[in-house]
Amino acid sequence: MSGKGSPAASRRKGLTLTDVLVTVVVSLVLGVVYHVWASVSSIAGLLFVQSDELVYGMWFAASTLAFLLIRKPGVALIAEIAAAHLEIAFGSAYGIQLLLYSVVQGLAAELVFAAFRYRNTSAGVAGLAGVAAAAGSLLADIYYGYVAEYATWLIVLKYSLRAVSAFVIAGLLMYGLAKLLEKAGVTQSLRPVDRKEYDALDG
């Protein structure tokens, strides 16, 4: 985007209330999904030791989906915090740690998007952001759940399953969902408008 944008273009650069509210609401819908997912997770957990990690990636989905839709700095972090806030608002006892986990995971995902200067919205980058969020959750787990004290094979199994799941669910699946929403025409009014498009109007 060039420096001398029209007022309308420059107004849209930072996060507006619309961006924030849409981000929060995307997390909210995923929050509804999370409640269903909690039972999916407990059923998946019956397969083998730590098999519930196979579906763990859903917990990182809010940040990638929100970024893929809005494509602005900060939305990945806000989406994670909003998902945690929902739990607090509806009386979850584990709200405080969900909040701190969400900050760590959201920042990790945000870092990946920032590394690509918020321009790259491919499925691979979304997957990478999901894996970064999973790594963030590992960091939090070490302090919170003492996972470093598990037998080594268990640590490797647990976190490689989680990373794969994060790549597939938070990355590929959310990319697909964002594409579907794009096809439905929902995203047009969400994204920052390029200078090019204003020029096209002038010409």
């Binding site: 507006t16 619309t18 924030v20 849409v22 609401v25 995307v26 909210l28 509804v32 699946l173 969902l177």
Partner: peptide, 25 residues
């Protein structure tokens, strides 16, 4: 499931959020 539930629910919610946000702005 994504096509039958996630897509329509998200689309509706996003549109409603946009309308609400514009009014709030």
């Amino acid at each position: 499931l994504p096509e039958l539930y996630a897509l329509p629910l998200l689309a509706q919610s996003i549109r409603r959020a946009q309308r609400t946000a514009l009014a709030m702005e």
